[in-house]
Nucleic acid binder design. Structure first.
Lengths: 207, 207
DNA sequence: ACATTACGATACGAGTCCGTTCCGTATCGG
DNA sequence: CCGATACGGAACGGACTCGTATCGTAATGT
């Protein structure tokens, strides 16, 4: 009923109102969302995920899921939102070092699962503009962090003054995305990937 | 003619033997594969595609599909293989111009549908190493074309002698992939995208 | 003519998942 | 203790897809 996608379980979380009866088990939320994430990471596409499978993997009754989420989209949205780790905080000393750090994080072990999940949500995103928007909202903060790094680099003179920030964002992140989701070029080694990428980007390819 | 995906259903495709009876309608092959592609482009994930839906959209009986493909993977594989256009042929005069051409083609209108289809196949690729291999085999020739361009650029002195070719491939294609499939950064304009990307890559971002 | 195969269409039993409803039990406030 | 709500589990009818089989018809070889 009052389950609005991202709103927390209890509807009137106002201080005065108190719900009678047995309270909902917070661990169930966690178990359910974790089950959804796990199924997605296994290669189940969004619409291939059955509520039954989620309930089984979470060790939960179907009713418990239906009680908390109005529909599958809401459930998926929450599951995705849960995956976001804390925002990275660049040191601010060297744009180059900050970018290396960000790229490294984008290729970290933790992102492997995230990439699989994203991949399995893609068909849904092709179909639904709403899901597209959810993804955009989830990733925009990280783009903004990188923007700040680039802007600071320009201020300090470490980067060109006429740098196209948006395009540069794409040039930094695009390769990692392609590798994470598609393993697009299996010949690119993992060793020193972040450093090589950033340095190549900074110095250019021309002779 | 002999569709050898994995296991072709037609038995005696031997040279001397001629099959008696009514021959198969070649147009049915086309209609079926086109229907599969259309469904994928609509955002149907690979396993969400039902043979019934394919048959209906192709104007074909289910039996006709089962008669020609042993399983869904074989059908999908053929559908993907059909989408590949002809390989691009760089002029060979200027590495920069050739790269611009390749990037432009990667973002062309025709790739829009291809990207959607790829996106909808991703869950299957996460799950199945076989599907991964199919994708790799389908894209490798295009990577090789780009490799040749880079090698020639190095020979002519237009590009750095110590250029990491594999990494550069990724840096050129990754951004387009991210944009095509995820619309990752909506702020990157379409105008002159290819030229800006290649030139930024060549000249570098450092001051 | 006749055997043979392909065709579109339809029907079939089996299986899965849907969303809901009902259990018996558990856990809260009053 | 009592009313209220949540829990896991099981069952429900309905909808859908599966892969196969069987129609009557169409198109080829001998």
């Amino acid at each position: 009923m009052e389950r609005m996608t991202t709103v927390s379980v209890d509807a009137g979380s106002g201080p005065g109102r108190k719900a009678p009866g047995r309270p909902r088990d917070a661990r169930a939320d966690e178990a359910i969302l974790e089950a959804v994430t796990a199924l997605l990471a296994e290669g189940q596409s969004a619409d291939a995920i059955s509520i039954e499978a989620v309930a089984a993997k979470a060790g939960v009754g179907k009713a418990t899921i239906y009680r908390r989420w109005a529909n599958k989209v809401a459930l998926l949205t929450d599951a995705v939102a849960r995956m976001k780790g804390p925002l990275p905080e660049p040191e601010g000393k060297s744009a180059r070092d900050d970018l290396v750090m960000l790229v490294k994080q984008g290729r970290a072990k933790r992102m492997e699962r995230y990439s699989k999940v994203t991949a399995c949500l893609l068909p849904e995103m092709v179909r639904s503009a709403e899901m597209q928007a959810v993804y955009q909202a989830a990733t925009e903060p990280r783009r903004e962090v990188m923007r700040q790094v680039l802007r600071r680099g320009i201020e300090t003179g470490e980067l060109r003054a006429d740098l196209d920030i948006e395009l540069t964002l794409l040039m930094i992140s695009g390769p990692s995305i392609a590798q994470n989701m598609l393993n697009w070029n299996p010949n690119v080694p993992e060793d020193g990937y972040a450093e090589k990428l950033v340095d190549a980007l900074l110095r250019g390819a021309a002779a």
